[in-house]
């Protein structure tokens, strides 16, 4: 076996894989945040809480209805999306004419409610969620062992991310969406129902978070606190990438996940803060973010 800078390759690639998985979640979540911000001008603080809700819906489906992972993969994002529609219709829609900060404060309150409620009923300890039978086991790639489930998470979230990118940048519906981001009044004048589109966008953005929650459930334990720590890192990712570009959000998420994995190998003490340090450096050099435009 060869060594890389004194680090056994098993450990290095293992951490890189973990970093890639974390990066996939960062990408899914920051993508949702960027889509929502583009359309609603709201920074969705509840994103992390809804990711947690997605994981919990999967867990509840399994434990109370006996519906397994593949059902959850479809049902949990749908449920989270429906929650999103209700939140948007009843609360967020009242704030569009106000300063963006109110959207942040409202969704912060919502995040506290979701997190507090789940914590009240299920405690702070994590609940295990089994890996589906189909994805058990793993592959020996020669230089490392790849558990099937982890490979699945990376591949499927990449597919979802790039599918979203394609839908927004290359399809007619995406064109309407981008137009409505630029000038909602004019788009409405062309006969497109913008309020419905806004609700759908929010629902889609939070459904992505719900999906990420289901994907994460077998890897991390399902816990009420799983979202709140993640969302702050995702905020940093969004600041680094800038929210102007969908592709930027995806690439920044993956890149930072990998960077975190590398830090865990070479300087584990700093692995918690490396994303924030990168954020500070990027802000000092390029305040608009790597892919951002000043707005």
């Amino acid at each position: 076996m060869f060594d890389l800078l004194g680090v056994p390759p098993q450990a290095l690639f293992g951490q890189l894989l973990l970093g890639l998985i974390n990066g996939s979640f960062y990408a899914l979540l920051s993508l949702g945040l960027a889509v929502i911000f583009g359309m609603l001008n709201v920074i969705n603080f509840a994103h992390g809480a809804l990711y947690m809700v997605g994981a919990f819906v999967a867990w509840l489906l399994l434990n109370y209805l006996g519906l397994g992972y593949w059902w959850a993969l479809f049902l949990a994002p749908t449920a989270v999306g429906l929650i999103g529609v209700v939140l948007e219709k009843t609360m967020l829609s009242r704030l569009y004419k106000l300063d963006h900060l109110y959207g942040l404060l409202l969704t912060f309150g919502l995040a506290l409610i979701f997190e507090g409620a789940f914590r009240h009923f299920y405690g702070v300890s994590g609940q295990p969620y089994p890996i589906p039978d189909l994805l058990k086991g793993g592959q020996n790639l020669g230089f490392m062992f790849l558990p099937n489930y982890r490979g699945w998470v990376v591949v499927s979230s990449l597919i979802v991310c790039f599918g979203t990118w394609f839908a927004i940048e290359r399809t007619r519906l995406g064109a309407y969406l981008r137009a409505a981001t630029e000038n909602p009044v004019l788009v409405q004048a062309f006969g497109i129902n913008v309020p419905v589109m806004v609700s759908a966008t929010y629902a889609f953005g939070v459904a992505l978070a719900g999906l990420a929650g289901v994907l994460a459930a077998p890897i991390y334990q399902v816990s009420p606190l799983m979202g709140s720590n993640l969302i702050i890192i995702v905020f940093a990712v969004v600041v680094i990438g800038g929210m102007g570009s969908i592709l930027g959000a995806i690439l920044t998420g993956l890149g930072l996940g990998l960077m975190e994995g590398l830090t865990k190998v070479f300087y584990p003490e700093a692995s918690n803060i490396v994303v924030f340090v990168v954020m500070a450096i990027v802000l000092l050099i390029k305040p608009a973010g790597l892919f951002g435009r000043e707005r």
Binding site: L105, L110, L112, I113, F114
Partner: peptide
């Protein structure tokens, strides 16, 4: 009563009704 839920609810009410 869970404290975060009450705090969160006050947040929501403040933002929506009396800013």
């Amino acid at each position: 009563l869970p404290v975060p839920v009450v705090i969160g609810a006050i947040f929501v009410v403040c933002v929506l009704l009396f800013r």
